[in-house]
Design a binder for these strands. Structure first.
Length: 468
RNA sequence: UCGGCGGUAGCUCAGUGGUAGAGCGAUCGGCUGUUAACCGAUUGGUCGUAGGUUCGAAUCCUACCCGCCGAGCCA
């Protein structure tokens, strides 16, 4: 059931461009629309060689001489070069085409031809071209631009090759996550975004005013709710936005990002680490299978992903990691957490992500299960990416013992009332369970080789940028 | 919050006390296979803001604003 705009002139114009509803007779009344219905996607052109097709797209670049013009065209599915010899159309059409500006919206008709001189090996020999809308002094020219300039025009920059490739990898990773968990019988389980308090007391939260009566906070994790879900449905995962009110200004941080949090009942630490590895390897494989061209467009060497897709992630104990960091001149005390430079050192030891476990209890969150016979350590594991992209995943087995959990909440000085329902889970059929949180943008930045997390989300939210 | 770097034409930058520059873009013209095409011409400025030093400031000084990178925190 789709909403159909009222019959205003603007609505009619919209309807002539976009199909609306299912009434073909109603919407198919203009010649233009019939042509649009028959459009071929640029991504399908290699299979259409020899045929005359219609392409709907936008002009990214134009080169012309007096007798021939080359139109670089994108349609969202790909890029293609359209060739317009002067003698293929009438004089007025050729003159008009030579004057098309960047981002002109075009309907192009031509024969699909294999030609080694064109990028991609296929080009469109035009027999007709019509401009639907002008590009209008488009600001992003095919030259260098600064970070700030492009950020202000993010709504336009998304059209360009780099963001195009990244967003397609992002789509594949998101679909891959859902497929991965669906294939394994996980239930997609949505956690709330408004929270009464912090999941972990440490990080800063965005406060929401509830009509002056009360405060809520934007979620920094769905984990506690996922635990309820795991004990209800066995295996669940959340996939939603996450908010961190941290004044971080680095390439590894956003105020708002997307997190995937699986949680599984009866799953213990070892199995949890295996699940992390399986997920990341699966996603790397999926991107290699579906987005080779996009990786190439990003100049991303696929070998990084190929190693990762094999699985077999190296494992390091916290103690061993401390030694390795010290060997490289970064001495830390036992009980210190690793900072960004240390994570970079550890991540670069191998050609694929590294798992670190055996963490000191005091470095980790209150809900983590202690190691058997060693209360100074917890059953937690972090997955660190190579190339300085930092922590991709943090996870642990959760405390299932009622008394221990109550004690930890008290030790951490947390408000007991807010956690009452969470504690209550331990009163009714409590079993060992584990889970982790994976940062979508961290993973994507690493997969695509992005310089900054802001490149891998459509509209990044940062300390210094809320628009567009 | 702290530390480093930066703000000059639409864009990317050069210019460190003496007439404000280049490349690209845009506009006009030329060119039948271009790949960020090429050739010629034209167009282009509150040098972040305010104050100060100086005969003279984009340049030196002070304050402020904005951004980038990093630290802490974390995904």
């Amino acid at each position: 059931m789709r909403w159909c705009p009222a019959s205003t002139p603007a609505a009619r114009a919209r309807r002539s461009i976009r199909r609306c509803g299912s009434g073909r007779g109603r919407t198919g009344r203009t010649g233009r629309l019939r042509r649009m219905d028959a459009a071929t996607r640029i991504s399908d052109l290699p299979g259409a060689i020899g045929r005359t097709v219609t392409v709907h797209g936008w002009l990214t670049h134009l080169r012309s001489s007096g007798k021939i013009a080359f139109l670089q065209v994108r349609d969202g599915t790909g890029f293609v070069q359209a060739v317009l010899p002067a003698n293929a159309v009438d004089e007025a059409t050729f003159a008009a085409a030579r004057a098309f500006d960047q981002e002109s919206a075009l309907v192009l008709v031509g024969e699909v031809v294999a030609d080694a001189r064109a990028k991609g090996g296929v080009e469109l020999r035009l027999s007709g071209v019509e401009r639907i809308a002008p590009g209008g002094a488009y600001p992003i020219t095919p030259k260098e631009h600064g970070v700030e300039f492009l950020a202000e025009r993010r709504h336009l920059h998304l059209r360009h090759r780099g963001p195009w490739a990244i967003m397609r990898v992002r789509d594949t990773v998101i679909r891959g996550v859902h497929d991965f968990f669906a294939e394994r019988g996980f239930l997609r389980f949505d956690a709330p975004f408004f929270m009464p308090t912090a999941v972990e007391g440490t990080t800063n939260l965005f406060e929401i005013d509830l009509f002056g009566e009360d405060s809520a906070y934007l979620s920094q994790s769905g984990q506690l709710y996922a635990e309820a879900g795991a004990l209800a449905y066995g295996a669940v995962y959340t996939f939603g936005p996450t908010f961190r009110a941290e004044k971080s200004k680095t390439r590894r941080h956003l105020l708002e990002f997307w997190m995937i949090e699986p949680e599984v009942a009866w799953l213990e630490h070892e199995g949890n680490m295996a699940l992390m590895e399986e997920l990341v390897a699966y996603l790397a494989r999926r991107v290699l299978d579906e987005r080779r061209d996009e990786l190439a467009a990003l100049d991303r060497d696929p070998r990084v992903l190929e190693a990762t897709a094999e699985g077999g992630f190296p494992r390091l104990s916290y103690d061993r990691a401390l030694e390795l960091v010290a060997e490289r001149g970064e001495r830390l005390e036992w009980g210190d957490d690793f900072g960004a430079p240390h994570e970079t050192i550890l991540g670069d030891l191998h050609d694929r992500p590294v798992l670190i476990d055996g963490w000191p209890t005091e470095t980790k969150a209150f809900y983590m299960e202690p190691l058997d016979g060693d209360p100074t350590r917890v059953k937690a594991a972090d997955l660190i990416a190579p190339e300085g992209y930092g922590e991709l995943i943090g996870g642990s087995q959760r405390i299932h013992d009622l008394e221990l959990l109550e004690r930890r909440i008290a030790e951490h000085g947390l408000p007991r009332e807010a956690f009452e329902w969470y504690v209550d889970l331990r009163r009714h059929g409590s079993v060992p369970h584990s889970g982790f949180g994976m940062g979508l943008e961290r993973l994507l930045a690493w997969f695509t080789g992005a310089k900054h997390l802001r490149e891998v989300i459509p509209f990044p939210r940062m300390l210094t940028r809320l628009t567009p």
